[in-house]
Structures are given as C-alpha cells and as structure tokens.
C-alpha cells in the first residue's frame, strides 16, 4: 500500500509551521514522530487527506528538551518518549510520567514517538482504522454511524459515547499528565490538560483535541508534585511487547491531594473524581484502594462485548493507588 500523495514541507520554526498550517486552511497536518500519522496516510482511512504535511522534525532540536524551571517541569513537544522514560528527574519526581512513557508501545516506537504526538494521536477504533475508509463512521462524518454500538465493541468505551463515538482514547501519556495536573502550551495559548481532550467529528482526522487547524503544541508543563505526593502509572495490555492499553490508570496521591485518571476506557482520558474523593487524605491500603477503585467504575456501563474492561479498569485504578503508597 502506497502513501497518499501530499506535499512535504520542512519549516524552520514554530511560527513558520503555524503560518503554513494557516495558509492551507485545514488541508494541512503536522507530523511529529510519524508513528501514528504514517499509518493513517498509508491505510487511507480518512475521507479527506491533507495536501500538505508539515514536518515538525525539521525544527526538532528546539522542541526536544526536558528541563526543570523552578517548580515546573518543561518538556518540549517533540521530546521522545524514550528520553522521558529514561530521564532521572522524571523518574524521581514525576514517576507516573516516566512509567507511562516506558509502557508506551515498543522500544522502536519510543525512540520515534513524541510526547505531543502521543497526546494528539487518533482514536483507536477498528472501524475508524479500517483500510480504505470502509466504515465512514460517526467520527468522520456527521451522518455516519458508530458501528461499534451494535457491532464488535470488545475494546470500546465503557463510559458511553462522545459525539456519537464509542472509540477509546489510546494514550498512555495522557492519564499520567492528567494525574500530574499538567498544562499543554501551544502556539496560541496554555491549556489545562483537563480541557485539552475532546471529541470532534472530522473528515480529516483532527478530532481528538481542542487544537485549531493552525495551532501546534509546543511544550508540556508539569508542576512539581507537592511534598509527600507520589505518583504511579499502570497499564493492562494483551501484549507486553507492543500494544495499546485495554485500560490504564495514573494516580498522584499524598497529603490532601489526590488526582486519578483512567485511560482507554472512554472517548477521552477520564478523571476518577469519585475515587479521588474516596482516597484523599487517607493512608493507602489494600482495602481503601479497592474501595476507591470501585468508585472509579461505579458509573461504567459495559456494552455487549466489553464488560470485562470494567473489571480491568478497576484493577488498574486500585494498583495505581497502591503504587502511590
């Protein structure tokens, strides 16, 4: 299978990249590590394809860094997942983030994939990803169906649909960043991570974030966890060598703080606020971790084939909490 034809441009700066995106009015897309986007182009899964691919790697050196600035960890948008997984500062102070990076995909992909690319990746639904856009689904077309509703939904959302779509958000980095209360800095603004993800119907595939068509992520900022706060990330996947999550969870807990986020169980990363309330201020043990995990999935509602994911998500939340003990 050959890639769809497009113009490939190499900007020298973020401003130039944004300018190119603006000039092409939604007919351009950005390429960071390329591990997600190349598959989209190769399989021809979308109704509309970009005329222009803006290669951010050409400005990579200035967007590839991990540095502490006071009480904030700053990570360049094009920082490789492998670098995050192996950074000593991240491992020590932002443990969930290092663990999430380490659990993402495979070693080969981690040395290509970037943190921003991981956040902005396409949803993971087999109907959406079917070659040649055989299923022109609700995520691509406002008149389309969500085939997973009555079809095979073994890995789909257990917390309902968004914009009519049951696809799950596949990011491993997102729950960790949500638990750590990060901000996403773009070429236009700073967006709290809780507000970064959304579900939009888009024939060009730009339907997972609030980013506008001429906006790119430039940096991730993570506040240093307060003293006594520990963080942890856990993931359940059918393959350990390379796989998207069946469910994952991240937690940052300590003192009176508790932020817990579940991934791969809903169209967006999902804060487990009930679990946070349940565990906040408590000394973590097996019993209260289990009770908090039960709270996390209290409103989950399985479909015909995916009820098992509720049990997995519950186990992941419990283990993420226990990881903060």
């Amino acid at each position: 299978m050959k890639l769809h034809k497009f113009n490939h441009v190499n900007p020298k700066s973020v401003d130039e990249a944004v300018s190119i995106l603006g000039r092409n009015g939604g007919k351009a897309c950005v390429n960071a590590g390329g591990t997600d986007m190349v598959g989209v182009l190769r399989l021809k899964i979308l109704p509309e394809y970009p005329d222009v691919v803006v290669n951010l790697k050409s400005i990579s050196p200035s967007m590839n860094y991990i540095e502490e600035d006071g009480n904030v960890l700053k990570i360049g948008a094009l920082t490789l997942l492998d670098d995050i997984a192996n950074n000593e500062i991240v491992k020590e102070k932002y443990t969930a983030l290092a663990q999430a990076a380490h659990k993402t995909a495979s070693p080969h992909i981690r040395v290509m994939g970037t943190i921003a690319g991981n956040l902005c990746q396409h949803n993971r639904c087999w109907y959406y990803w079917k070659k040649d856009n055989i299923f022109n689904c609700a995520r691509k077309d406002t008149t389309g169906l969500c085939y997973a509703t009555a079809g095979q939904n073994k890995f789909h959302s257990v917390f309902g649909a968004a914009a009519g779509c049951l696809a799950f958000h596949p990011s491993d980095m997102a729950p960790a960043l949500v638990a750590l209360n990060a901000d996403v800095v773009t070429s236009k603004r700073t967006i709290p991570i809780d507000e970064f993800f959304t579900v939009k119907v888009s024939p060009s595939g730009a339907g997972s974030t609030v980013l506008e068509s001429d906006e790119v992520v430039t940096e991730i900022q993570v506040p240093q966890p307060a003293s006594g706060v520990k963080s942890a990330f856990v993931k359940f996947a059918l393959r350990k060598s390379i796989d998207f999550p069946v469910a994952n969870a991240a937690a940052a807990i300590g003192g009176e703080e508790a932020r817990i986020c579940m991934g791969a169980v809903a169209p967006n990363p999902r804060r487990a606020t009930g679990a946070e309330d349940s565990i906040r201020g408590q000394s973590i043990n097996e019993s209260n971790a289990d009770a908090a995990a039960a709270e996390a999935v209290r409103n989950a509602m399985g479909l015909a084939h995916n009820r098992w994911k509720i049990q997995i998500a519950r186990a992941m939340v419990k283990r993420a909490i226990l990881g903060c003990a």
């Binding site: 109907y127 990803w129 055989i134 299923f135 085939y147 079809g151 059918l238 060598s241 390379i242």
Partner: peptide, 19 residues
C-alpha cells in the same frame, strides 16, 4: 462486524500476534 461481515481486526495491531 456482524452488520457487514467484514473482519475488523485484520491488522497486526488489533490481531494480537505474540512475540
């Protein structure tokens, strides 16, 4: 997909081949 008869995990991401 029982609605259309298509295989839906006909790729090496969704079909869980081990290594």
């Amino acid at each position: 997909d029982t609605q259309t008869g298509f295989q839906i995990n006909d790729n090496l991401i969704d079909y869980k081949w081990f290594s």
